[in-house]
């Protein structure tokens, strides 16, 4: 019994140390964003600053217009992208799950093949910019990520096949229900857990996406919060330089640069951290089924 207690203490110590290592940069980020600029310059980014200050957040509050716009864009693309992505992937998954679907095998293979081979960045970029003219439109932030991963379609299809008895669909069919009625009244309600899980994955992917903005968006007014963060990582003055509607009357010298940079990052992570505890269950499930099919 005694060795057991020792073992448990040891395991807790290991896990606590690892958890602390994972958490540490976040805490540092948070503390620095509330630190006084003078004490940062003097002592560096420290967990225990000489004095705290809300200056960085006061400064960002002064730049409310560009920040609010970027936030709005992120919320918009996340909502539209997640819902549209879920809808078209579950519709396709449903068709492919039905044995009656003509060309089912060929079409399923077309879905799988996208996982094996892709055209790469250059042709994709040319298709979206020169054929569909999505450069500098909000669609460029939504469309490329819609079916983030064709794997999701296969997962949903497997779920439809495994957990919804064919007899249920058949009897509805005999009763004269249309495919759409079967899909929306029977399939969707029975598949809420898997849809919530995939929806969660899509939401995180859209919220975190900076790559599409990096290549398709050059107009700062269309930046999502991630793209704004991306630009400010290399150029902290970006917020006030680019005619984004922020106030540029304050002189650069007064700007608490280090703290502002970290405060921006805090603003970028906060929503994810806030919803995380409530959706952890779905997320963990999503990760597991996403890795090991079905």
């Amino acid at each position: 019994m005694r060795t057991n207690a020792v073992q448990q203490t040891l395991f807790h110590a290991i896990m606590a140390a690892l958890s602390a290592a994972c958490l540490f940069p976040f805490i540092l980020l948070f503390v620095v964003s509330f630190s006084d600029e003078q004490s940062i310059i003097l002592n560096g980014y420290s967990l225990i600053p000489d004095s705290f200050s809300l200056e960085a957040y006061r400064y960002l509050w002064g730049q409310l217009t560009p920040l609010a716009r970027a936030y709005g864009i992120t919320v918009l693309i996340t909502a539209v992208g997640t819902i549209t992505g879920l809808l078209i992937s579950s519709l396709l998954a449903y068709s492919l799950s039905r044995d009656e679907m003509p060309l089912r095998r060929v079409l399923s293979f077309l879905v799988v093949f996208t996982l094996l081979f892709n055209g790469g960045l250059v042709p994709t970029y040319l298709v979206y910019t020169e054929v569909f003219h999505l450069k500098n439109t909000l669609l460029a932030l939504i469309v490329p990520g819609l079916l983030t991963n064709a794997f999701f379609i296969l997962i949903i299809r497997t779920f439809f096949k495994m957990s919804i008895p064919g007899a249920v669909i058949e009897s509805a069919y005999i009763d004269g229900a249309s495919e759409w009625t079967i899909f929306s009244r029977i399939i969707l309600p029975l598949s809420l857990p898997i849809l919530a899980t995939i929806g969660m994955m899509l939401t995180i992917a859209y919220w975190n996406d900076w790559f599409n903005g990096l290549i398709y968006i050059t107009n700062p007014k269309l930046y999502s919060i991630q793209n704004l963060l991306n630009r400010m990582l290399s150029n902290i003055q970006f917020l006030m330089q680019n005619d984004l509607g922020g106030r540029s009357s304050e002189s650069l010298a007064q700007m608490p640069m280090n703290a502002v940079r970290m405060a921006m990052a805090v603003i970028g992570i906060l929503p994810i951290l806030c919803i995380y505890p409530f959706f952890q269950k779905y997320l963990v499930k999503g990760l597991v089924i996403g890795a090991v099919k079905g």
Binding site: L92, S95, E100, V143, P144, S178
Partner: peptide
């Protein structure tokens, strides 16, 4: 109807994957 339901997803794969291929 089944084919119609599959169309948006298939059209998307054509645009996003097969044209670049």
């Amino acid at each position: 109807m089944l084919i119609l339901m599959a169309l948006p997803g298939l059209a998307y794969l054509v645009i996003n994957n097969y044209l670049p291929m």
